[in-house]
Structures are given as structure tokens and as C-alpha cells.
Amino acid sequence: MNGVELFLLGRTLMKIGEQAMPEPKSGPRGSVRSVLVTLGDIVTHPGTTVGEITARTGLPQSQVSTAVARLEETGSITTAPDPTDRRRRLIHPAARPSPRVAEVRATTIDAALATALTTPDGTPPPPETLTEITTALEALARHLTPETATRAREL
């Protein structure tokens, strides 16, 4: 596998992950991808600001601001004024998982993965294929964490 193949695989996995995410029942919609990227950055850098997230992720400030609003409304994060500069807000992961976070964590990828692997003629993948791929993804998730990605960016 080369870098391009890994990049394309990552994009495919992101799209399957997006399909597996349950839709929020209320609140601002926003891009699932920008919300997840923003949340991942907040978890890795608690006490951050919208500007800092924008700089680290490369997302436009408007997308980060929308994602922060959505995450705050769902109870996934908290914000508070920066004591050194009251114009800025510091963003932290919520101390306890919100009902939305619990819902997302409880939703498996099974249906989205099965849909992605269904052949053009409608033949579903065999159960052993789903098990094999899910097991491989679980192994990757154990070894390739958000902290791994941070270290890779620092190289």
C-alpha cells in the first residue's frame, strides 16, 4: 500500500463512518465531517479556541464555529470565557457524555458497512467478510489513535 492508497482508504472509511452516524434529532445540522474533526481536536487540545482549532485543522472558521455551536447544543462540549481575554471562549470536552454522545457511541457500523460492501447487483456481503473487516478495523483503531495522527503531523 502506498500513501495515495492509504489516503483513499481513509476517505472511504470516513464516508462509511458518516453513514453510520445517527442523525441528530434537533439543533444545527452542519457537516458531520467538520463536527467530528472539530470534536477530535477539542478532545486532543482541551481549553482551546475556535481560532486555534481552525489553525490546527485547516477547516474554515465558519465551519469550526458551526461545529462548536452544534457540539455545545448537544452537550458534547462546554465553553467559557477566557479569563485572560474575555472576547475569546475556551472550549472543553463535556465532563460527562451527553445523551447525543451516548447515542453515537452505541451505534455500530454494521449496517453502513454492509451497505458499502453490497455488490451492484444487490448481493450482500457474507457474514464472515463483515466479521473479518470489522475485526481489522478494531485492530487499526487500537493502534491508530487521534494521538497517532497528531504525532504524524509533527514529523
Rank of each mutant, 00 (worst) to 15 (best):
L59A: 07
P93R: 08
I42N: 04
T118I: 01
V101A: 02
E103L: 10
R151L: 15
L6P: 00
L155Y: 13
T119P: 02
I91Y: 01
T66L: 09
A111M: 11
A102H: 11
S31G: 00
V32M: 04
R86T: 09
T38N: 08
V35C: 11
T44W: 05
Q61F: 10
L140A: 14
L140R: 04
T78L: 10
R100P: 01
G10I: 12
S34Y: 07
R11T: 10
V4C: 07
A20G: 05
V43H: 04
I53L: 11
I133C: 06
L59T: 07
N2F: 11
R89T: 08
V50D: 10
E5F: 11
L113V: 08
G58T: 10
P124N: 03
N2W: 10
A112R: 02
T131D: 07
A116P: 00
P24I: 00
R87P: 04
P99E: 05
G3P: 06
L71T: 01
Q63M: 13
E132M: 10
A112V: 01
A116R: 09
I109T: 14
I16A: 03
A80C: 15
T134K: 09
T135H: 02
A80M: 12
I133W: 04
E138F: 01
D41E: 15
L137Y: 02
A106D: 04
T38K: 00
A136S: 08
L6C: 08
E23H: 08
D41N: 13
L39Q: 11
I77W: 07
V37L: 15
T131V: 02
E5S: 12
A111N: 04
Q63N: 15
T134S: 14
T107F: 02
L13F: 05
T79D: 06
A152E: 14
T84A: 15
E5V: 05
T108R: 02
L8K: 14
S65L: 12
T66A: 13
H45Y: 15
V104D: 05
E72R: 12
H45E: 09
I16Q: 04
T107M: 02
P83A: 11
T84S: 15
T54W: 12
T107A: 14
A94P: 04
E138A: 10
I42T: 04
T108C: 03
A67C: 09
G47M: 09
Q19A: 15
S98R: 00
E73G: 12
E103Y: 05
S76K: 07
L59C: 08
R151A: 15
T48D: 06
